[in-house]
Design a protein around this nucleic acid. Structure first.
Lengths: 166, 166
DNA sequence: AACACTTGCTTCGACTTCGAACCAGCGCTA
DNA sequence: TAGCGCTGGTTCGAAGTCGAAGCAAGTGTT
């Protein structure tokens, strides 16, 4: 039997649990606001926001979207379908690569993001940042940023399954 | 039209996104390990762990469990059913309050937790704490702990719907 | 004691999410 | 250019999640 690793120190446990719980509760709160003000789920908001705010062209390939949002491919297909049905986004085959599909925000999509963003910001501010000082906020970002990079280095989620093939 | 709030500063955005992404990826990683080594979902692990490690009596009421794990009541009913079918917990009507149900870990449940815990700890250590210094870890916990408290102050999730009645 | 209100849990239906299986286009090598 | 593996997306079935509705037991009011 292999040595069991030393248990997590109380400090670590506290950090770990707090992190998970805070993220969970925050997501809940945000989701509620988005649902009420824009009839969007958190994932849908993420997708729209990424397209509308982070992408210069307002469009991305499906797989890149899936990777960016930590989503399975099939799940993304589903959500993209919903967003398209709602007229917030359009799908078109990519010109250079016949297999891939590019997703693009529509004007309606951009408008919706603009509409829900202020409320979104309010919620995040109240829930997450209210108990933190200016310095605390900065520190939090600086602590988590390297962790984020570290985790991203691992294989992207959208593939995942495929690679398991012998 | 009301004033729109000032947008989140880049520092805040960074902290917010990092937090959500780190939590999401970590959950993914942990879930995978739990699935492989113990055939448990993250939620099931949380429930078992709470009963086996946090509760002196090894038992809790359904609602308290739901609140502690940020879970809807109906979802908990479902999961408790699964865990019971697997022989990891037992449900019994509470002696003092005829309505409420007490959930208790079985020996098998405790054994399973013991079995998966080391691997769990390994994953958390590698994924979350590897890029952090000792001091960083402590700082992270100290930053998030007040936020956690702050968010918990809001109404618990398991009720939520009910209170909306006029 | 009878009434209404609240609380604890379950049932139900609708919606998400995931992974496995699948098809089709790309790229490499022979 | 024929063949083979690889990659991008979708489809499909199984599982998880939630809120609304429902039932039973407690609490309080008159």
């Amino acid at each position: 039997m292999p040595d069991t690793p030393p248990p997590l120190a109380p400090v670590e446990l506290g950090a770990y649990f707090s992190l998970m719980e805070v993220a969970g509760l925050l997501r809940h709160a945000v989701e509620q606001q988005l649902r009420e003000e824009g009839d969007l789920s958190y994932v849908q908001f993420q997708l729209l926001a990424r397209l509308a705010l982070d992408s210069p062209s307002g469009s991305e390939r499906m797989t890149d979207l899936a990777d960016g949002v930590v989503y399975s491919r099939s799940g993304l297909t589903y959500q993209a379908g919903l967003l398209e049905k709602a007229g917030l986004v359009e799908r078109a085959p990519s010109p250079d690569d016949e297999r891939s599909v590019t997703v693009m925000v529509t004007a309606a999509g951009r408008a919706l993001i603009e509409r829900v963003l202020p409320g979104h910001v309010e919620v995040v501010r109240h829930q997450l940042f209210a108990p933190l000082s200016e310095a605390g906020t900065r520190a939090l970002g600086e602590l988590l940023s390297p962790v984020r990079e570290h985790m991203r280095a691992a294989p992207p989620r959208s593939a995942g399954a495929r690679r398991r093939r012998r």
